[in-house]
């Protein structure tokens, strides 16, 4: 894997998490293709990849769009392992989906054993603010608690869609860059090991 990464453009792996029906796929499709699909078709799991320019540097984003309606949360562990950054999505019109973000956060922390993983809390369906059930303050206070950013997006109007993905990629990139030096030190010994 390490070898392959050398040849490739930098690849940032983003994982979409959140309850069913909050708009993970809608956000992904909007970001990927500029589509907005009105009808709801529960996702199994899909992977998307796109070449993008991040702050003037070409790179690739790999988005794993996961199923929100999973009977057994445990089988998501597998996804989380491969994730470098997470968009934790809830719908501002559905309080329960906000509650569940805690579960996802916990599961990710548990699987990765890492609290500093790039993570953004996303309140989707901002275009439906009229029937909002989750106040911005409440969401923001939870984000502070988790020490992460909070964005409100609309997959329908493409509000903040590019912004959340870009911001997440930036976080992933800076985290990678800072870990590189450490890695370089370890590298020699690892090579020997191999």
């Amino acid at each position: 894997m390490v070898k392959k990464a050398k040849q490739d453009l930098p690849l940032h792996k983003v994982i979409m998490v959140g309850s069913g029906g909050v708009g993970k796929s809608a956000l992904t499709l909007q970001y990927m293709y500029g589509d907005f699909v009105e009808e709801y078709d529960p996702t199994k799991a899909d992977s998307y990849r796109k070449k993008v320019s991040l702050d003037g540097q070409e790179c690739q984003i790999d988005i794993l769009d996961t199923a929100g309606q999973e009977e057994y949360a445990a089988i998501r562990d597998n996804y989380y392992r491969s994730g470098e950054g997470f968009l934790c999505v809830f719908s501002i019109c559905e309080y329960e989906s906000f509650v569940h973000t805690q579960d996802f956060r916990d599961q990710i922390s548990r699987v990765l054993d890492d609290d500093s993983i790039p993570f953004i809390l996303v309140g989707n369906k901002a275009d439906l603010a009229k029937i909002r059930k989750v106040s911005e303050e409440e969401a923001k206070s939870r984000a502070r608690e988790w020490n992460c950013d909070y964005y409100e997006t609309s997959a329908k109007t493409r509000t903040n869609v590019d912004e959340v993905y870009t911001e997440l990629m930036r976080k992933i990139k800076s985290r990678k860059d800072s870990s590189k030096e450490r890695e370089n030190k370890v590298k020699r010994s690892r090579c020997v090991c191999l």
Binding site: M1, K4, S47, R49, D62
Partner: peptide, 22 residues
């Protein structure tokens, strides 16, 4: 699956297998 496309389908396929096992 790891060879093709940087293993992008690996997670998806493994997820499908997990579901099948369950």
């Amino acid at each position: 699956f790891k060879e093709e496309e940087g293993g992008r389908l690996l997670q998806v396929v493994w997820h499908a297998i997990e579901e099948e096992v369950i």
